[in-house]
Design a protein around this nucleic acid. Structure first.
Lengths: 108, 108
DNA sequence: GCCGTGAATCGATGAATGTCAATGCAGGCC
DNA sequence: GGCCTGCATTGACATTCATCGATTCACGGC
């Protein structure tokens, strides 16, 4: 392969963390969970999602685990029920990841 | 299963399109391509990515196809070489998808 | 036309993922 | 204690995906 330009290094960052964060957002079921929590302003029971999404209970639990691993939600268990809420600063973390990838400020 | 609350519908939108958009961002190689294009302010040759990323040429082409399908980049072929640039409004589309999912304005 | 070159496409393969059924676990209630 | 209930975890399975090698395609130069 011959070069079409003398030199052209590309962005050096690895963006592994950003990829993992966006990956957690790459599923409609997880997005609906996040959208619901964002509009709730308080916690929601796990059974809400089991009923609302047309998904098995174990599948819902699986998605919640992924969202928790990505630090987008926080979960708490009280008695028999489990409650989840949006993690503080969840949107800000996504916005920062987006800013690191596609800076809004036009380049030099 | 018994309900922990009398009624609790969840977010009604399907968020399929948003999921597909975030999926395009859910890979470090694609993020590096986007980050490079965002900082370039003009087009970049495909061979740049083939050299820069430690990936096969066909793999790079595959990722570029995904980014193009997500309308995040636009590609053009001039002669033997192929050139890609960031699609106008790419960042805005992502921000709107984020806004639909996690509205910044606090809820009613 | 015939090569050479860069990029796109095809086919295959191994890994990761979403989903469900079954099981395990912790807490409440009798 | 024994049982029920809601959630988490495990195992299995089908699908999707990232990656590569080989092939094909489009263009330029001879």
């Amino acid at each position: 392969m011959q070069r079409c330009a003398p030199e052209a290094p590309l962005y050096e960052g690895e963006l592994i963390e950003e990829g993992a964060l966006f990956h957690a957002l790459a599923d409609p079921a997880r997005l609906r969970i996040l959208a619901t929590l964002a509009r709730a302003d308080d916690e929601r029971c796990v059974c809400d999602f089991t009923v609302g999404l047309a998904l098995n209970q174990s599948t819902v639990s699986h998605h919640l685990k992924i969202l928790k691993a990505a630090a987008l939600v926080i979960g708490e268990r009280r008695g028999t029920w489990g409650f989840y809420r949006l993690a503080p600063g969840a949107r800000e973390r996504i916005e920062r990841a987006l800013e690191r990838t596609l800076p809004a400020a036009v380049r030099a």
